[in-house]
Structure formats: C-alpha cells, structure tokens
Nucleic acid binder design. Structure first.
Lengths: 121, 121
DNA sequence: CAGTATCCGGATGGATACTG
DNA sequence: CAGTATCCATCCGGATACTG
C-alpha cells in the first residue's frame, strides 16, 4: 500500500489542520450536511432537523461557519424575526466531500460496530 | 442548488453521526492521514510525525481506531518493545475521503482565512 | 520503546432564564 | 422567532512520573 496519495504536511500550523480542526466540534459537519441537503433554512428549522442541538450551540456553530465563509446568514427585518441560512458557494464546494464521508459511514457502520463489540469483549 | 445529494438521516442515533462523531476528536483524522501516507509505522514514529500529540492521547486515539477496526496493531515480543501500526482494509477504504477533505482544505484555506479576518473586523 | 497511572486546568457544551 | 446571557458539569487532553 502507501504513497498513492498526495502528501500533506501534518505540522501543527499547517493549513489542513487549521481547517480540519473546525470539524472537530460537535455540530459543524452536521449543520453543513443539513443545509446542503435542504437548501435555505430558518434557524428553528435547522434546530428541529438536527433535533438534539441546543440553541446556544447552534448559534455558535452557525456564526463560526459564517465567519469561515461557508454559510450565508440573511436577516429579514420583520416581526417576528426571520433569519435564513444557506451554504455559500464555498460551503457547497465542501458538500461532496462531506457526503462522501457520510456515505462511507453509512456503508461501514455495521462493520465498525461489530469490530467495537469484538474489541470490548 | 439542493437535493443533488443522497439524503441522510440526521437523527441523534443515526449511523452517520455515530461514525462522524469519532472524527470529532482532536487526533483521529490526522492519525489516519499519517498512517495512510506512510504505511506501517511505529508508535514513536507517528508521535514524531504529528509532533504535538501527547503520548497519552496518541495511545487513546490508536486504541479507539483499533477498536473501530480502522487500524491494526502488531506487537513484537522484543526488548526493547516494538509495536507497529498500519491501516486495515477498512481504514484504507476511508483514506480517499480523508485526502479529498484535506485537498479541499489545502485549496481553500486562504479564502477561509480571509473570510475570518473580514468577519472579525 | 511503548506504553500506564495520576493529576489537573481549560474548553466544550447543556440547561435555564431572559429579550427585541 | 431568533437569539443573548449566565451558570455550571463534564470531559478532553496536557504534564508529569513511573514501568515492563
């Protein structure tokens, strides 16, 4: 095996780690996945779709994704307020990589679970 | 946009979240990337390659990846001890998805950093 | 060399209450 | 509706010391 892949630096300051660390939080990948699948969504819509994310963490996650330029946030000056979120072009360019990861997870979850059980036996 | 992607459940107990949560820790993706690029490696080799991972966290990460069946651990009964790690077939099947993520990160880090600076200005 | 054991601080993130 | 503010428990993960 080995070395059929492009080599990446793995030093602490490298760009790849800088970005991948972002996905290390609990909700970022999931929010991108949900927005990518559903298009434009309101705050509470995302909240209900994910189900078990707190209001606080959803806000923090969306703000971070907005800061990174992955998600666009549009506020409508209405009462009651309406705020819509959608992936930016950059965010959408990330989607295929996320979905391919999700597909892999979907296809291999059984094997992984079996492996975990064996290991803990 | 939207709905060009296969739909995934996003409920708290879904398989995808079960697997993706694993990548939420600080070192898993990086260890897989390093092993995928270099093939078989000894404990201290991985440690040095990553650079800023503690002995404890590297052990924990490797054990978890082993439990999930992504990494194989082979102990040689020698003094001083030698332990070699490599990706399993399952682990290797994950590699393309990780490297495609890394490539994306590499290509877009500049735009993301620029976006962050604008947002915090 | 490749770990284990222990301690410990800081960050993560949940619950709750409140607001424009 | 879409947040903010605050408090607080947990847990992640680093530092250090020790071992077969």
């Amino acid at each position: 095996m080995e070395k059929n892949f492009k080599k990446f630096s793995t030093s602490p300051q490298c760009p790849i780690r800088n970005v991948l660390d972002r996905f290390g939080d609990k909700w970022s990948i999931l929010v991108i996945l949900v927005l990518g699948e559903n298009g434009t969504m309101r705050f509470n819509e995302i909240n209900k779709t994910i189900g078990d994310v707190s209001q606080k963490m959803l806000t923090v996650t969306l703000r971070t994704l907005e800061a990174d330029g992955l998600v666009a946030r549009q506020v409508f000056p209405e009462i009651p307020p309406r705020v819509e979120y959608q992936l930016t072009h950059l965010g959408m360019s990330l989607m295929p990589h996320i979905t391919s990861l999700a597909s892999w997870a979907d296809q291999n979850i059984h094997q992984i679970k079996t492996s975990r059980e064996k290991f803990n036996a």
